[in-house]
Amino acid sequence: MVRSIVGLLLRAASTLLIVLVIAFFITRIAYRNPAAMLAPRNASQQAIDAIAHALRLNEPWYLQLWYYLYRGPDIQGAPMGLAHWPPGLGYSFRKQTAVTDLILSKVPVTLSLALGAVVIWMTLSIILGVVATRRQGSWIDSSISGVAYVSLSVPTFLSGILISYFLFFQLSNYGIFWFPSSGYVPLTENPLEWARHLALPWLTLALAEIGIFQRVVRASMLEVLGEDYIRTARAKGLPEWRIYYDHALKAALNPVITLGGLELAVIMGGAIVTETIFGLDGVGRLAINSALEGDFPVIIGTTIFAAACFVLCTFVIDIITRWRDPSSIS
């Protein structure tokens, strides 16, 4: 068991490293005159040159890569290179901040969004999935399936707009301001406001995911219920509810956990659409704005952050799956 964990860890680390290198090259090639793009408008050639010098843009590419991967000279006081903790991911001239600090300041928003949404959609999906399984073939099952179908067929940006319209705009016409349509209040400041501001974004994300997960839960439950050991449980005279929740659900959760981890990773990397529509200042919004502006240190930084989240989540999922059932190692 320990050996496989070490193996997984090594693989995760090497994956991340290669992603870093590829991201570095893509952005260096794509953004042709980075110093000019990063400087404020109408900057003099002198200022642009100064920026190019500070970012070491005129040095050979392998040196730049080395600074990035291991350790490089500080830029404007911000440490450069992965050999620091937290890893120095560069410096953004547009925003005059170290990239790492920039990203870390946006993480609480994205984290709140992601974790809240996960809890909501997982709980609801499991409940609805089990209910649909118990009443398989009935109108309850069909209607849940129908709703799930609809919600997964609507893209997030569309559902976000519609939710914002109906639950904010229309309600506000009647003087009801339960769910603000934008902004963020940190949890530590005011939990109620925190939840109120995140309610609509959570709903948007959760709706799309429930559509997928409810059906995965249902399909997995149905498959498990056809297994021989469920028949053995019935032969022992166990009550139905125990068979569903204690025997079947336990075994059916594997695909749900795996998929859940993947979706969480993607959202952590930036639920760009949701953050944009609801004006949440998270990592996703940072990423897309930087990409549109050409602020390439931030682009590389957010790409690495997203990849790191993905690698971390898949790693954790692998560990959890193996711990639950060591014989499932492929």
């Binding site: 297994e227 021989d228 050991y229 028949r231 053995t232 449980a233 019935r234 032969a235 022992k236 005279g237 166990l238 009550p239 025997h247 336990k250 075994a251 639950r324 059932d325 014989s327």
Partner: peptide, 24 residues
């Protein structure tokens, strides 16, 4: 029926690998 199964009637099935819950 459930009251009788297990208490009055015991069952033994063919393939013990698939008939036992793998996670318990």
């Amino acid at each position: 029926m459930r009251k009788r199964r297990g208490a009055e009637i015991g069952f033994i099935f063919q393939d013990p690998l698939s008939n036992l819950h793998p996670l318990k």
